[in-house]
């Protein structure tokens, strides 16, 4: 419907301009969004492993405003390090991990956990 395109163009361009302006302002001052704030992905350091219920407490946050995110680990959760499978039992406090998760019943269920750096190799130490 060609006639419908024109009226939609102006608001679309305006929206694009606003987005570009905000992005430009952020770049000018070096302001960078917190990469750990994406809704279905987080990076952080394991603080505690709940072996009974199969869950992880992960420290994340912004500056020194830190928070603990509880992530449930299921049998289907893929845990890897450098592309290789990594046993849940080898995870320890201090490991730096990237977690992909989905929310169900007000819980964060880990789809995958990638160990970026293990405590044994330095981790968050």
């Amino acid at each position: 419907m060609p006639g419908a395109t024109k009226p939609a163009l102006a608001p679309a361009l305006a929206a694009l301009f606003i987005v570009a302006a905000i992005a430009g302002a952020s770049t000018a001052t070096g302001l960078i969004a917190d990469p750990s704030s994406a809704p279905d992905h987080l990076k952080g350091t394991i603080r505690y492993i709940d072996t009974n219920s199969g869950g992880l407490e992960v420290i994340t946050g912004f500056h020194l405003a830190l928070k603990i995110v509880y992530v449930h680990v299921e049998e289907s959760t893929a845990i890897t390090m450098e592309g290789e499978s990594y046993p849940f039992s080898d995870l320890e406090a201090g490991d730096i991990v990237a977690v992909e998760y989905h929310e169900a019943d007000d819980r964060k269920i880990a789809d995958s956990i990638e160990v970026i750096e293990s405590m044994a190799e330095g981790g968050a130490r």
Partner: peptide, 26 residues
């Protein structure tokens, strides 16, 4: 390093990665 593994440089313990975070978080 920050808790997400990024290299950090601000603060007496070098925990904050960027000045933008150092400023806003404060």
């Amino acid at each position: 390093r920050f808790f997400d593994g990024r290299i950090a440089r601000f603060g007496r313990k070098a925990l904050i990665p960027t000045l933008a975070e150092f400023n806003e978080g404060a």
